[in-house]
Design a protein around this nucleic acid. Structure first.
Lengths: 104, 104
DNA sequence: TTAGTATTTCGTAGAATTACGAAACAAAGA
DNA sequence: TCTTTGTTTCGTAATTCTACGAAATACTAA
C-alpha cells in the first residue's frame, strides 16, 4: 500500500471505470440488446447477427463489460447466456445520477 | 452521406461520446471541481495546483471536455474561466438516466 | 471416438489516448 | 518596448484500444 499515492478519490476512479466500459457504441448496443430482450436468453451469436463486427471482436467487448461488472455470463452449453449484473448496474446508475445532479 | 453506413443509432453514438469524455479520473476531477466552485471563477491554474499532472496535460483534458460539449471556457484575459455547459449537461444527464433506467 | 456448434483466446497491426516539457500565444503592466 | 503571467499548442514517446482471422476450448450428439 505505501508508495502508491492516490490522487483521485475512489469514487472518481470508479466512475471513470464505468464510463469507460460504456464508452463505445458496440458496448452500448450490447446493453441495449440485453435490455430489449430482458426475458429472453441473450447469446453472443444472436447479437453477432445484427452488428457488423467479427465475433471475436464482439467477444472482446463482452469481456470488457464483464470486467467492468456490468454484465454476467451464465454458461448454458454450448451457449452462454448474458444478462445485466443488476447490483453493479444499480450502483453505476446511482453514481452517474449523483454526478450529473450535483451541478444543476 | 451515401456510402457511409450507420450500424449504430445516433443515440448510441452520442452516449458513447459523452461516456468517453468522462472516462478518465482527471476529467471527473475537473467536473467535480467546477461543481464545487460553481459560483467562483474556475481557472485552469487553480485546478493544476491540486492535481498531479502537467499543466499542458490538464489543458488537453479541458480541450476534450470542451470538444464533448460538457464545459465551456469564457476568456477573461489572461485567465480563462471554465464552467459547465448546462444545456449539454442536461442532455447527457437525461440520456444516461434513460439508459440506466431502461433495464431495471 | 469423431464431428459439429458456440464461443473465446491468441497473434498481430493500426489507430487513438495519455503524458511530458519546450515553445508559442495573448494580454497586462512596467 | 520588454517582461511577466496564464494558458495552449507542438513534438514525441509509451501505452491502451479496437479489430480481424486463425486456432483453441468446451460441450453435445452421432
Amino acid at each position: 500500500m505505501p508508495g502508491k499515492k492516490k490522487y483521485y478519490t475512489e469514487s472518481q476512479e470508479k466512475m471513470a471505470r464505468y464510463a469507460k466500459a460504456i464508452a463505445h457504441p458496440a458496448r452500448i448496443y450490447i446493453l441495449d440488446f440485453l435490455a430489449d430482450n430482458i426475458d429472453k436468453c441473450c447469446y453472443s451469436g444472436d447479437m453477432a447477427e445484427d452488428i457488423p463486427i467479427a465475433r471475436s471482436t464482439l467477444s472482446e467487448h463482452l469481456k470488457e463489460l464483464k470486467k467492468a461488472g456490468l454484465i454476467q455470463g451464465e454458461i448454458n452449453p454450448p451457449y452462454i447466456k448474458y444478462c445485466i449484473n443488476k447490483e453493479n448496474w444499480e450502483e453505476a446508475h446511482q453514481m452517474f445520477d449523483a454526478f450529473f445532479r450535483k451541478r444543476l
